[in-house]
Design a protein around this nucleic acid. Structure first.
Length: 414
DNA sequence: TCTGGGGTCCTGATGCTT
DNA sequence: TCTGAAGCATCAGGACCC
Protein backbone atom coordinates (compact mmCIF):
# COMPACT_ATOMS: atom_id res chain seq x y z
CA UNK A 1 0.00 0.00 0.00
CA UNK A 2 1.23 3.50 -0.66
CA UNK A 3 0.06 7.05 -0.31
CA UNK A 4 1.38 10.51 0.25
CA UNK A 5 0.76 11.84 3.75
CA UNK A 6 -0.48 15.16 2.39
CA UNK A 7 -3.94 13.59 2.17
CA UNK A 8 -3.77 12.19 5.70
CA UNK A 9 -5.43 14.19 8.49
CA UNK A 10 -2.96 12.69 10.96
CA UNK A 11 0.18 10.62 10.57
CA UNK A 12 0.65 8.29 13.55
CA UNK A 13 3.64 5.97 13.83
CA UNK A 14 3.85 3.01 16.17
CA UNK A 15 7.39 1.69 16.64
CA UNK A 16 7.91 -1.61 18.44
CA UNK A 17 11.37 -3.06 19.08
CA UNK A 18 11.72 -6.72 18.07
CA UNK A 19 12.20 -9.17 20.98
CA UNK A 20 13.79 -6.26 22.79
CA UNK A 21 15.38 -7.82 25.89
CA UNK A 22 16.67 -10.83 23.96
CA UNK A 23 17.95 -8.60 21.16
CA UNK A 24 19.91 -6.46 23.64
CA UNK A 25 21.48 -9.58 25.13
CA UNK A 26 22.46 -10.78 21.66
CA UNK A 27 23.80 -7.34 20.81
CA UNK A 28 26.02 -7.28 23.92
CA UNK A 29 27.20 -10.88 23.63
CA UNK A 30 27.93 -11.99 20.05
CA UNK A 31 28.10 -15.63 21.17
CA UNK A 32 24.32 -15.50 21.77
CA UNK A 33 23.48 -14.33 18.25
CA UNK A 34 21.56 -16.74 16.05
CA UNK A 35 20.80 -19.00 19.02
CA UNK A 36 17.49 -19.62 20.82
CA UNK A 37 17.54 -17.39 23.89
CA UNK A 38 15.12 -16.90 26.78
CA UNK A 39 15.28 -13.86 29.04
CA UNK A 40 13.61 -14.40 32.38
CA UNK A 41 13.90 -15.60 35.92
CA UNK A 42 15.19 -19.11 36.40
CA UNK A 43 13.35 -19.50 39.71
CA UNK A 44 10.72 -22.20 40.15
CA UNK A 45 7.92 -19.69 39.55
CA UNK A 46 9.60 -17.62 36.85
CA UNK A 47 8.15 -16.84 33.44
CA UNK A 48 9.69 -15.88 30.09
CA UNK A 49 9.99 -12.12 29.68
CA UNK A 50 11.21 -12.27 26.09
CA UNK A 51 12.15 -15.11 23.76
CA UNK A 52 14.44 -14.54 20.78
CA UNK A 53 12.94 -15.28 17.37
CA UNK A 54 15.07 -18.44 17.19
CA UNK A 55 13.25 -19.72 20.32
CA UNK A 56 9.80 -18.57 19.18
CA UNK A 57 10.06 -21.11 16.37
CA UNK A 58 9.67 -23.82 19.04
CA UNK A 59 6.42 -22.32 20.28
CA UNK A 60 7.87 -20.36 23.17
CA UNK A 61 6.26 -17.00 23.93
CA UNK A 62 6.28 -14.19 26.46
CA UNK A 63 4.70 -14.83 29.88
CA UNK A 64 5.07 -18.58 29.44
CA UNK A 65 6.22 -20.41 32.60
CA UNK A 66 9.98 -20.94 32.30
CA UNK A 67 9.70 -24.66 33.08
CA UNK A 68 7.35 -25.17 30.16
CA UNK A 69 9.46 -23.01 27.84
CA UNK A 70 12.54 -25.09 28.61
CA UNK A 71 10.64 -28.26 27.87
CA UNK A 72 9.52 -26.86 24.51
CA UNK A 73 12.96 -25.54 23.63
CA UNK A 74 15.57 -27.51 25.64
CA UNK A 75 18.45 -26.15 23.55
CA UNK A 76 17.60 -22.55 24.53
CA UNK A 77 20.02 -20.54 26.61
CA UNK A 78 18.45 -18.76 29.59
CA UNK A 79 19.75 -15.44 30.87
CA UNK A 80 18.38 -13.35 33.76
CA UNK A 81 17.07 -9.88 32.83
CA UNK A 82 19.30 -6.81 33.16
CA UNK A 83 16.72 -4.04 33.42
CA UNK A 84 19.23 -1.26 33.94
CA UNK A 85 20.86 -2.13 30.61
CA UNK A 86 17.48 -2.30 28.86
CA UNK A 87 16.59 1.11 30.29
CA UNK A 88 19.88 2.47 29.00
CA UNK A 89 19.20 1.19 25.47
CA UNK A 90 15.60 2.35 25.72
CA UNK A 91 16.77 5.90 26.42
CA UNK A 92 18.84 5.77 23.23
CA UNK A 93 15.84 4.50 21.25
CA UNK A 94 13.43 7.09 22.67
CA UNK A 95 15.87 9.90 22.07
CA UNK A 96 16.17 8.68 18.47
CA UNK A 97 12.39 8.91 18.15
CA UNK A 98 12.60 12.39 19.64
CA UNK A 99 14.71 13.51 16.69
CA UNK A 100 11.71 12.82 14.44
CA UNK A 101 8.90 14.38 16.46
CA UNK A 102 8.41 16.36 19.67
CA UNK A 103 5.29 14.28 20.27
CA UNK A 104 6.59 10.88 21.37
CA UNK A 105 4.52 8.76 23.76
CA UNK A 106 6.48 5.81 25.19
CA UNK A 107 4.23 2.86 26.07
CA UNK A 108 6.98 0.78 27.64
CA UNK A 109 10.75 0.39 27.37
CA UNK A 110 10.48 -0.95 23.83
CA UNK A 111 7.62 0.79 22.05
CA UNK A 112 6.23 4.23 21.44
CA UNK A 113 3.80 6.26 19.40
CA UNK A 114 5.04 9.23 17.36
CA UNK A 115 2.73 11.89 15.98
CA UNK A 116 4.33 12.84 12.66
CA UNK A 117 1.42 14.96 11.42
CA UNK A 118 2.57 17.85 9.25
CA UNK A 119 6.15 16.65 8.94
CA UNK A 120 6.04 15.39 5.34
CA UNK A 121 8.15 18.32 4.14
CA UNK A 122 10.87 17.28 6.56
CA UNK A 123 10.68 13.50 6.30
CA UNK A 124 8.68 12.76 3.17
CA UNK A 125 5.99 10.14 2.63
CA UNK A 126 4.82 7.70 5.35
CA UNK A 127 7.01 5.01 3.77
CA UNK A 128 9.98 7.33 3.94
CA UNK A 129 9.24 8.27 7.58
CA UNK A 130 9.02 4.61 8.59
CA UNK A 131 12.18 3.63 6.75
CA UNK A 132 14.13 6.55 8.21
CA UNK A 133 13.03 5.74 11.77
CA UNK A 134 14.06 2.11 11.33
CA UNK A 135 17.46 3.06 9.93
CA UNK A 136 18.05 5.63 12.67
CA UNK A 137 17.27 3.12 15.44
CA UNK A 138 19.51 0.51 13.86
CA UNK A 139 22.37 2.99 13.66
CA UNK A 140 21.90 4.49 17.14
CA UNK A 141 21.76 1.10 18.88
CA UNK A 142 24.43 -0.67 16.87
CA UNK A 143 22.08 -3.04 15.08
CA UNK A 144 18.74 -3.47 16.88
CA UNK A 145 15.68 -3.76 14.66
CA UNK A 146 12.28 -2.16 15.13
CA UNK A 147 8.97 -2.92 13.48
CA UNK A 148 7.02 0.15 12.40
CA UNK A 149 3.38 0.73 11.54
CA UNK A 150 2.13 4.01 10.05
CA UNK A 151 -1.49 5.04 9.71
CA UNK A 152 -3.93 7.78 10.63
CA UNK A 153 -4.84 6.51 14.11
CA UNK A 154 -2.98 5.03 17.05
CA UNK A 155 -4.92 1.80 16.91
CA UNK A 156 -4.35 1.03 13.24
CA UNK A 157 -0.67 2.03 13.49
CA UNK A 158 -0.32 -0.33 16.44
CA UNK A 159 -1.87 -3.30 14.65
CA UNK A 160 0.20 -2.48 11.57
CA UNK A 161 3.49 -2.55 13.47
CA UNK A 162 2.76 -6.11 14.55
CA UNK A 163 1.68 -7.19 11.09
CA UNK A 164 5.13 -8.06 9.75
CA UNK A 165 7.57 -8.81 12.51
CA UNK A 166 10.49 -8.73 12.94
CA UNK A 167 11.99 -5.72 11.16
CA UNK A 168 8.67 -4.91 9.47
CA UNK A 169 7.30 -1.74 7.92
CA UNK A 170 3.57 -1.56 7.22
CA UNK A 171 1.79 1.53 5.88
CA UNK A 172 -2.02 1.67 6.09
CA UNK A 173 -3.52 4.79 4.45
CA UNK A 174 -6.51 6.04 6.47
CA UNK A 175 -8.98 5.44 3.64
CA UNK A 176 -7.90 1.79 3.49
CA UNK A 177 -7.90 1.18 7.25
CA UNK A 178 -11.32 -0.49 7.56
CA UNK A 179 -10.66 -2.89 4.69
CA UNK A 180 -7.16 -3.61 5.97
CA UNK A 181 -8.38 -4.37 9.50
CA UNK A 182 -11.31 -6.55 8.37
CA UNK A 183 -9.48 -9.90 8.01
CA UNK A 184 -7.52 -9.49 11.26
CA UNK A 185 -8.62 -11.75 14.16
CA UNK A 186 -10.75 -10.27 16.95
CA UNK A 187 -7.85 -10.89 19.33
CA UNK A 188 -6.20 -7.89 17.62
CA UNK A 189 -8.89 -5.61 19.06
CA UNK A 190 -7.54 -3.42 21.84
CA UNK A 191 -9.19 -4.48 25.07
CA UNK A 192 -10.05 -7.97 23.86
CA UNK A 193 -8.09 -10.39 26.01
CA UNK A 194 -8.65 -14.14 26.31
CA UNK A 195 -12.01 -13.78 28.11
CA UNK A 196 -13.50 -11.25 25.71
CA UNK A 197 -12.23 -13.18 22.67
CA UNK A 198 -14.07 -16.31 23.83
CA UNK A 199 -17.28 -14.29 24.26
CA UNK A 200 -16.87 -12.57 20.88
CA UNK A 201 -16.36 -15.91 19.14
CA UNK A 202 -19.39 -17.35 20.91
CA UNK A 203 -21.41 -14.50 19.40
CA UNK A 204 -20.09 -15.39 15.94
CA UNK A 205 -17.40 -12.71 15.62
CA UNK A 206 -14.05 -14.15 14.49
CA UNK A 207 -12.60 -11.23 12.51
CA UNK A 208 -12.51 -7.48 13.03
CA UNK A 209 -14.64 -7.19 9.90
CA UNK A 210 -17.38 -9.22 11.64
CA UNK A 211 -17.32 -6.71 14.49
CA UNK A 212 -17.35 -3.71 12.11
CA UNK A 213 -20.51 -5.02 10.45
CA UNK A 214 -22.27 -6.01 13.69
CA UNK A 215 -25.44 -4.46 15.06
CA UNK A 216 -24.16 -1.90 17.58
CA UNK A 217 -26.92 -2.87 20.01
CA UNK A 218 -25.76 -6.50 19.98
CA UNK A 219 -22.22 -5.53 20.98
CA UNK A 220 -23.43 -3.03 23.54
CA UNK A 221 -25.78 -5.54 25.14
CA UNK A 222 -22.95 -8.02 25.61
CA UNK A 223 -20.01 -5.74 26.41
CA UNK A 224 -21.41 -2.34 27.43
CA UNK A 225 -18.95 0.50 26.93
CA UNK A 226 -16.32 -2.00 25.81
CA UNK A 227 -18.62 -3.07 22.97
CA UNK A 228 -18.91 0.52 21.77
CA UNK A 229 -15.13 0.77 21.80
CA UNK A 230 -14.76 -2.48 19.84
CA UNK A 231 -17.20 -1.15 17.25
CA UNK A 232 -15.28 2.13 16.91
CA UNK A 233 -11.87 0.44 16.62
CA UNK A 234 -13.15 -2.09 14.08
CA UNK A 235 -14.27 0.86 11.96
CA UNK A 236 -10.88 2.53 12.24
CA UNK A 237 -12.12 5.21 14.66
CA UNK A 238 -9.67 6.16 17.42
CA UNK A 239 -9.52 9.84 18.27
CA UNK A 240 -6.98 9.60 21.07
CA UNK A 241 -3.97 11.84 20.60
CA UNK A 242 -0.34 10.99 21.12
CA UNK A 243 0.49 12.38 24.56
CA UNK A 244 4.15 13.04 25.33
CA UNK A 245 5.13 11.60 28.72
CA UNK A 246 1.77 10.91 30.38
CA UNK A 247 2.07 10.97 34.19
CA UNK A 248 1.82 7.71 36.10
CA UNK A 249 -1.33 7.36 38.21
CA UNK A 250 0.14 4.81 40.58
CA UNK A 251 3.47 3.27 41.54
CA UNK A 252 3.60 -0.27 42.86
CA UNK A 253 5.91 -3.05 43.91
CA UNK A 254 4.90 -6.66 44.33
CA UNK A 255 6.77 -9.90 44.68
CA UNK A 256 5.86 -13.49 44.06
CA UNK A 257 7.47 -15.56 46.77
CA UNK A 258 9.45 -18.70 46.17
CA UNK A 259 7.43 -20.34 48.97
CA UNK A 260 3.94 -19.46 50.20
CA UNK A 261 3.64 -17.55 53.48
CA UNK A 262 0.92 -17.25 56.13
CA UNK A 263 2.56 -15.71 59.20
CA UNK A 264 1.71 -12.07 59.78
CA UNK A 265 5.37 -11.23 60.43
CA UNK A 266 6.40 -12.69 57.08
CA UNK A 267 3.69 -10.79 55.20
CA UNK A 268 4.66 -7.56 56.95
CA UNK A 269 8.33 -8.12 56.09
CA UNK A 270 7.44 -8.37 52.39
CA UNK A 271 5.21 -5.30 52.65
CA UNK A 272 8.06 -3.35 54.20
CA UNK A 273 10.34 -4.20 51.28
CA UNK A 274 7.66 -3.07 48.85
CA UNK A 275 6.93 0.10 50.85
CA UNK A 276 10.60 1.07 50.77
CA UNK A 277 10.85 0.35 47.05
CA UNK A 278 7.71 2.35 46.22
CA UNK A 279 8.74 5.26 48.46
CA UNK A 280 12.13 5.45 46.81
CA UNK A 281 10.51 5.58 43.37
CA UNK A 282 8.08 8.26 44.58
CA UNK A 283 10.98 10.41 45.77
CA UNK A 284 12.83 9.90 42.48
CA UNK A 285 9.69 10.93 40.59
CA UNK A 286 9.06 13.93 42.86
CA UNK A 287 5.59 12.67 43.74
CA UNK A 288 3.68 11.98 46.94
CA UNK A 289 0.87 9.45 47.37
CA UNK A 290 -2.49 10.08 48.99
CA UNK A 291 -3.59 6.47 48.90
CA UNK A 292 -2.15 3.05 49.69
CA UNK A 293 -3.39 -0.24 48.30
CA UNK A 294 -2.36 -3.67 49.54
CA UNK A 295 -2.63 -6.69 47.27
CA UNK A 296 -2.26 -10.34 48.19
CA UNK A 297 -2.65 -13.36 45.96
CA UNK A 298 -3.83 -16.57 47.58
CA UNK A 299 -2.52 -19.95 46.56
CA UNK A 300 -5.70 -20.50 44.51
CA UNK A 301 -4.73 -17.30 42.59
CA UNK A 302 -7.60 -15.29 44.02
CA UNK A 303 -6.47 -11.70 44.43
CA UNK A 304 -7.63 -9.64 47.39
CA UNK A 305 -7.03 -5.88 47.58
CA UNK A 306 -7.61 -3.32 50.30
CA UNK A 307 -6.97 0.38 50.05
CA UNK A 308 -6.95 3.39 52.32
CA UNK A 309 -6.70 7.14 51.93
CA UNK A 310 -3.88 8.95 53.72
CA UNK A 311 -4.50 12.17 55.63
CA UNK A 312 -1.47 13.76 53.92
CA UNK A 313 0.46 12.93 50.79
CA UNK A 314 3.66 11.04 51.57
CA UNK A 315 6.80 9.63 49.95
CA UNK A 316 8.02 7.99 53.17
CA UNK A 317 8.32 4.22 53.20
CA UNK A 318 7.63 3.98 56.93
CA UNK A 319 4.32 5.83 56.50
CA UNK A 320 3.29 3.67 53.54
CA UNK A 321 4.16 0.57 55.51
CA UNK A 322 2.22 1.61 58.63
CA UNK A 323 -0.88 2.18 56.54
CA UNK A 324 -0.42 -1.07 54.61
CA UNK A 325 0.08 -3.09 57.79
CA UNK A 326 -3.21 -1.73 59.15
CA UNK A 327 -4.95 -2.86 55.96
CA UNK A 328 -3.67 -6.37 56.60
CA UNK A 329 -6.07 -6.64 59.55
CA UNK A 330 -8.86 -7.39 57.11
CA UNK A 331 -7.06 -9.96 54.97
CA UNK A 332 -3.95 -11.15 56.78
CA UNK A 333 -5.55 -14.38 58.02
CA UNK A 334 -6.95 -15.42 54.60
CA UNK A 335 -3.61 -16.99 53.55
CA UNK A 336 -1.44 -18.73 52.68
CA UNK A 337 -0.29 -16.24 50.04
CA UNK A 338 2.03 -16.59 47.07
CA UNK A 339 2.29 -12.86 46.34
CA UNK A 340 2.33 -9.70 48.44
CA UNK A 341 2.35 -6.21 46.98
CA UNK A 342 1.83 -2.55 47.76
CA UNK A 343 0.77 0.31 45.50
CA UNK A 344 0.78 4.06 46.03
CA UNK A 345 -2.00 5.87 44.16
CA UNK A 346 -3.65 9.28 43.89
CA UNK A 347 -0.26 10.83 43.17
CA UNK A 348 0.47 14.54 43.49
CA UNK A 349 3.61 16.52 42.76
CA UNK A 350 5.80 16.75 45.82
CA UNK A 351 5.88 20.20 47.40
CA UNK A 352 9.28 21.78 48.20
CA UNK A 353 11.19 19.56 50.66
CA UNK A 354 11.19 22.08 53.50
CA UNK A 355 7.44 22.50 53.17
CA UNK A 356 6.94 18.78 52.86
CA UNK A 357 8.76 18.18 56.13
CA UNK A 358 6.34 20.48 57.88
CA UNK A 359 3.39 18.51 56.59
CA UNK A 360 4.26 15.23 58.20
CA UNK A 361 4.53 14.29 61.83
CA UNK A 362 7.95 14.52 63.51
CA UNK A 363 8.42 10.75 63.35
CA UNK A 364 7.67 10.92 59.63
CA UNK A 365 10.15 13.78 59.29
CA UNK A 366 12.91 11.68 60.84
CA UNK A 367 11.96 8.70 58.73
CA UNK A 368 12.04 10.79 55.56
CA UNK A 369 15.46 12.19 56.42
CA UNK A 370 16.72 8.68 57.02
CA UNK A 371 15.25 7.41 53.79
CA UNK A 372 16.64 10.22 51.64
CA UNK A 373 20.04 9.54 53.20
CA UNK A 374 19.68 5.88 52.22
CA UNK A 375 18.68 6.97 48.70
CA UNK A 376 22.06 8.63 48.40
CA UNK A 377 23.83 5.49 49.64
CA UNK A 378 21.85 3.31 47.24
CA UNK A 379 22.53 5.67 44.33
CA UNK A 380 26.22 5.42 45.04
CA UNK A 381 26.66 1.77 46.00
CA UNK A 382 23.62 0.05 44.51
CA UNK A 383 20.13 -0.70 45.78
CA UNK A 384 21.25 -3.76 47.76
CA UNK A 385 23.97 -1.90 49.63
CA UNK A 386 21.90 -1.21 52.74
CA UNK A 387 19.03 -3.14 54.19
CA UNK A 388 17.21 -3.60 57.45
CA UNK A 389 18.88 -6.06 59.82
CA UNK A 390 15.50 -7.78 60.13
CA UNK A 391 15.46 -8.39 56.38
CA UNK A 392 18.76 -10.26 56.31
CA UNK A 393 18.21 -13.78 55.11
CA UNK A 394 15.10 -12.83 53.16
CA UNK A 395 15.10 -12.94 49.39
CA UNK A 396 17.37 -9.90 48.79
CA UNK A 397 20.91 -9.42 47.64
CA UNK A 398 23.67 -9.32 50.24
CA UNK A 399 24.98 -5.96 51.35
CA UNK A 400 25.91 -3.79 54.28
CA UNK A 401 23.53 -4.60 57.14
CA UNK A 402 22.31 -1.67 59.19
CA UNK A 403 19.59 -1.89 61.81
CA UNK A 404 17.27 0.64 60.22
CA UNK A 405 14.45 -0.09 62.64
CA UNK A 406 16.72 1.22 65.37
CA UNK A 407 17.92 4.18 63.28
CA UNK A 408 14.39 5.23 62.40
CA UNK A 409 13.82 6.16 66.02
CA UNK A 410 16.91 8.34 66.17
CA UNK A 411 17.91 11.64 64.70
CA UNK A 412 19.90 11.07 61.54
CA UNK A 413 22.06 13.86 60.26
CA UNK A 414 22.86 12.46 56.83
C1' DT B 1 1.62 -27.13 32.77
C1' DC B 2 1.55 -23.86 35.94
C1' DT B 3 0.90 -19.43 35.66
C1' DG B 4 5.69 -12.32 36.70
C1' DG B 5 5.64 -7.39 37.47
C1' DG B 6 3.97 -2.88 36.76
C1' DG B 7 0.59 -0.52 35.10
C1' DT B 8 -4.54 1.27 33.31
C1' DC B 9 -9.40 1.18 32.93
C1' DC B 10 -14.02 -0.34 33.89
C1' DT B 11 -17.89 -2.01 36.68
C1' DG B 12 -20.85 -3.08 40.46
C1' DA B 13 -21.55 -2.51 45.31
C1' DT B 14 -21.78 0.47 49.03
C1' DG B 15 -22.13 4.50 51.79
C1' DC B 16 -22.58 9.40 52.33
C1' DT B 17 -24.79 13.83 51.32
C1' DT B 18 -28.37 16.67 49.72
C1' DT C 1 -38.54 14.28 61.79
C1' DC C 2 -38.58 10.62 58.65
C1' DT C 3 -38.00 8.62 54.10
C1' DG C 4 -36.75 7.85 49.39
C1' DA C 5 -34.33 9.30 45.29
C1' DA C 6 -30.44 11.07 43.01
C1' DG C 7 -25.77 12.12 42.62
C1' DC C 8 -21.28 11.36 43.90
C1' DA C 9 -17.11 9.27 45.87
C1' DT C 10 -14.84 5.31 47.32
C1' DC C 11 -13.75 0.56 47.37
C1' DA C 12 -12.80 -4.07 45.61
C1' DG C 13 -12.37 -6.98 41.93
C1' DG C 14 -11.72 -8.25 37.16
C1' DA C 15 -9.75 -7.87 32.66
C1' DC C 16 -6.41 -6.27 29.95
C1' DC C 17 -1.80 -4.49 28.07
C1' DC C 18 3.23 -4.66 27.60
Amino acid sequence: MSATSSTWPRVIVHADMDAFYAAVEQLDDPSLRGRPLLVGSTSRRGVVLTASYEARGSGVGSAMPMLRARRLCPQALVVPPRFERYQEVSRVVMSTFGAFSPRVEPLSLDEAFLDMSGSERLFGTPESVGARIKAAVREATGGLTVSVGVSGTRYVAKVASGYRKPDGLTIVPPEEAIAWLAPQPVSSLWGAGPKAVVRLQALGFTTIGDVARAEPSKLEESFGALGRRFMALANGVDARDVVASPRARSISSERTLSTDISARADIEAQLRLSADAVARRLRHAGRVARGVRVKVKRTDFRIVTRQAVLSEGTDVGAVLFTCAAALLDGVGDAGPFRLVGLAAYDLDPCVAPAEQLDLVAPAGTRARRLETTLDAVADRFGSGAVQRAGDLGRDRGAGLAVNLDFLADEEVDG
